[in-house]
């Protein structure tokens, strides 16, 4: 089973979800721990569509990826195509964009600009921290189903 956590840029929500899945951080993690994640706020718009292999969970690859505004479209297309191709690919696409809040959105936007990078990163991390329980619930649901 391949776990595919996806959000807009793959820089915040899906990155944290993958870290939660792998136990790199706990649901009780502080903002500093989120900021300390290797791939937090790293992926850029040009990286969209390119998954990052965060690690393995019981031998299953756990990835995160940015799919732009295609968070609803991506799983539909992946399901359709694998079905038509009869490709035996076991995967779970998890839409993390449903856990976005205003601080993460604003922080993610600001962090793209040179002078606001530090502020944006911190704001995005704070936003993610506020919704960490929600993201963890999503991870648990993906693991169980």
């Amino acid at each position: 089973m391949i776990y595919f956590y996806h959000c807009y840029r793959g820089a915040h929500l899906s990155c944290v979800a993958a870290a939660l899945h792998l136990g790199i951080i706990k649901p009780s993690a502080k903002v500093e721990e989120i900021l300390g994640l290797e791939y937090f706020d790293v992926l850029q718009n040009r990286d969209m569509g390119v998954p990052v292999l965060a690690g393995y969970c019981h031998g299953n690859p756990v990835c995160f990826v940015g799919v732009g505004s295609g968070s609803k479209i991506f799983p539909r297309f992946a399901d359709c195509l694998t079905e038509k191709l009869q490709a035996n690919v076991q995967y779970k696409a998890v839409d993390c964009l449903q856990c976005i809040n205003l601080p993460t959105r604003i922080g993610g936007f600001l962090s793209r600009f040179k002078g606001f990078k530090a502020l944006g990163r911190r704001l995005a991390a704070w936003g993610v921290h506020k919704n960490l329980e929600k993201i963890y619930a999503l991870v648990l649901h993906a693991k169980r189903s």
Binding site: F4, G49, P51, L53, C63, V65, V67, G70, F77, A87
Partner: peptide, 13 residues
């Protein structure tokens, strides 16, 4: 991004 992600998913799988 969607096509790229699906191509990568198929390659990974």
């Amino acid at each position: 991004p969607v096509i790229k992600a699906v191509k990568n998913l198929l390659a990974l799988g």
